[in-house]
Design a protein around this nucleic acid. Structure first.
Lengths: 342, 342
DNA sequence: ATGAAAGCGCTAACAT
DNA sequence: ATGTTAGCGCTTTCAT
């Protein structure tokens, strides 16, 4: 194990002070260009590497940002993370990433770890069953910026990055109505989470606009798993008056539901039209292709990270943060349009 | 901004020494149980949090592990990361995650950052075009464990976690042969990477076993993108004597290729049978369902991380590390079997 | 069982 | 433009 080189070693060799070496290495303007070159060369030669702890200890900055997501292994989330990483990496921030596995308890533990790791900022998408938000208050109280994305909470001091779930749900439902559906089932997640409550509200808004009744028995609150998709198909199958359209708040669930319905002999979209959500790769592969809502994960990651960097750089915007709303888009495919064969 | 509580604050209040407080907080055996309780309660009351930098600075450990992957937004990789995170989190390690975006340059930069962040260990899956491995030597020379997974290099001091790509490629090809294919195209990636060279070798081995010639014009070296899938379909379509089977080293590419072939009027598997690789969700959704190789991402992540933890805990195994080989499995579906309709 | 004190490597206020 | 110096908060050796 080689010994670590410190600025003292470099200082001694070059007969300079450690302070000068430190300044040179940090490109401080007060240091002569010549000296800088000298020091940097020697540092390279000796294989010097800055000790970030010592530096962090002094500066009270870590150059590290925390990210807590419900699950790493989702198509949407990995796109978000890819976007975040790209921005963060470009400006020299590291990412500490952890997953709550949809558990409020684990989310709390993760937030605590992030806090103890002294992240300079935290980006969070809330777990399924989180009710209390004290674990974020801890950070917020110490002026550590917390930004929520996708699954967010309303907090006056926190920026949020979202899509307009209400509008997306509205457009998805309106599309089904325009295609002639009159009895539309909605399969959603836990409406504690904005993403699902928003889509549900949009669904109701569209129905109301068409002067159709809201039938609570057509609204299935599930965990949006593939099993839930099968259950939804069975539920539909068991009904006397069958729905002619389904809006499902997640593509993988929707695709599984569609497969189950096809197996039971239903014609898609003839008997039942289906709209999903996310524009996952599966939506373009299932037959017929799934009409769905494009969900800009990569952009959301980049946007949230840019907002974070801005905040860290002290570009203080208004005290109360306005949510950043990204554009989502209904992508119409064969699962809802009879004439189409795309 | 509240002031940070330190062990000195606690020490002063309780009229103890900082050393005692430090020991108590770390559950040192020499401290009376009573004192420990007292100190822990006061710490909790004051909202004390350990300053990891100061601690790291002293102990020269970071409790942080680095992970460098080619891309975050792949189905396989997010499964790997989920597995890694779960294990690491359980034993109190944090994960610093970055992506090389398949660029050797970025991979080097990331490795340097990891090195400077003083990660206790590094887990890597190599970028597409990496040729030189000096950036890992830096860490290895300082006894920082480096573990490669999936896309690996051969290094006497590094554990690797892989699947038997040769065998997987062999089985995929043999299956096509058993289904009656006699002219099998292979679409692969950069054979600099073990995963692709292994599958290619397995493909050749199967052909050799069947006493069939290796036709280099049937081997397409691509970037395995969706575009490559379309290109492969066009290539096949342009050939005078058309292949009756294709083995593609990636599901998304395979699915796109299948779609393109279907559009050109080919019957799958009647005219052309197709085998993919990864068991991505899309493989179970495309029609006909794609025969593919199950690739244990989640398990690979967990396994690699466990190996890392073991190594960090000093469970020294042999000096020369044996690769850890996980079981992959050919999953036979409709894209290769005419009788099946699964 | 507890305390005193040194020092990990760096940065920054202050001095020159 | 460069140097001196005093910590940042923690751990740990040595002493009591």
């Amino acid at each position: 194990m080689e010994k670590e080189i410190t600025i003292y070693d470099i200082a001694k060799i070059l007969r300079l002070s450690p302070a000068t070496v430190s300044r040179a290495l940090n490109d401080h303007p007060a240091i002569k260009k010549q000296t800088k070159i000298l020091i940097n060369e020697k540092a390279a030669e000796l294989g010097y590497r800055s000790n970030t702890f010592a530096s962090n200890l002094r500066t009270r900055k870590t150059n590290t940002l925390g990210v807590i997501v419900p699950r790493l292994n989702s198509n949407f989330m990995s796109a978000v993370l890819a976007g975040m990483e790209e921005i963060a990496n470009n400006v020299g921030y590291n990412l500490l990433i952890s997953q709550s596995l949809e558990s409020a308890g684990k989310e709390q533990a993760n937030a605590k770890t992030m806090f103890n790791s002294r992240v300079d900022g935290l980006l969070v998408s809330i777990a399924y069953d989180t009710d209390s938000f004290d674990h974020f208050e801890t950070l917020i109280n110490r002026n550590i910026p917390v930004i929520f994305f996708d699954r967010v909470i309303d907090h006056p001091q926190c920026t949020t990055v979202i899509i307009d779930n209400n509008q997306a749900g509205y457009e998805a439902t309106r599309h089904l109505l325009e295609e002639g559906c009159r009895k539309i089932m909605h399969v959603t997640g836990d409406v504690k989470r904005n993403v699902y409550s928003g889509r549900l509200d949009g669904y109701k808004r569209a129905l109301a606009e068409w002067k159709l009744p809201i039938d609570e028995s057509l609204i299935l609150r599930t965990d949006l798993s593939q099993e839930a998709g099968i259950a939804a198909a069975e539920r539909l199958h068991s009904m006397a008056e069958k729905p002619d359209g389904i809006f499902i708040a997640n593509d993988l669930c929707a695709v599984t539901c569609m497969k189950a319905l096809k197996e039971k002999g239903y014609n898609i979209p003839g008997d039942v039209a289906i709209v999903g959500f996310n524009n996952d790769p599966v939506s373009q592969v299932v037959e017929p292709h799934l009409t769905t809502v494009f969900y800009p994960g990569y952009l959301m990651g980049k946007t949230a990270m840019k907002a974070m960097i801005n905040q860290l750089n002290g570009n203080k915007t208004a005290d109360v943060k306005e949510p950043i709303i990204l554009r989502s888009e209904l992508i119409i495919r064969g699962s809802t349009v009879k004439s189409s064969n795309s």
